[in-house]
Design a protein around this nucleic acid. Sequence first.
DNA 1: GCGACAG
DNA 2: ATCTTGTCGC
Length: 207
Amino acid sequence: MTPERLFRLQGELSRLVEPGGALGEVGLVAGADAAYKGDLAVACAASIDMETMEVAEANFCSGRVSFPYIPGLFALREARILMEALKGLRARPDVCIVDGHGVAHPRGFGIACQVGLALDLPTIGAAKRRLFGAAEGDRILGASGEVIGAILPAGPGRRLYVSIGHRISLPDALRVVERCMRKGGVVPLAIAHKLARARLSASSHTI
DNA sequence: GCGACAG
DNA sequence: ATCTTGTCGC
């Protein structure tokens, strides 16, 4: 599998992304993230109650990762383990926020798209740094004259790049993310991040 | 040729 | 992302 083949595949798959879909009432919003120690990875899917912003359920998946981190191919490293963590949740969340980009990607198919498409789940990509596209004004991320995402202020000197993953519109994605915003960042992602790191630490301390 | 480059 | 001390800001 050459890099060129992977690039072409991402481009083809990007056409399967559903940039809309009716996102009804959101009761559970999941956050998906992973922590690493060498090639050992622990992923956490944290389901958050949209009303209280409290953890309703959390599921983990640990394993070895073989693919290295390459900008643009992040999904090949982390999508599988994130999906396993998500599939293990007893209650299927209404939408999932993934730590990474959605369509704001060189080939329009970031990790949020891949996870959403594979699980047939509405997903949102939320990244702390830009990968593709250019800021158009203060709040819009665009490319080739198209809006590919939004830029949200996220604390002193910090920004959040939001783009759709699958089966959701950008306005709906923004509505969900903004409701999840706190001082510490995006609650579902912050929780998933914290729990993944805690689980990783606990497992590595086991003899 | 040079810079950019999710986690 | 992860490895890590002191340090700047509220």
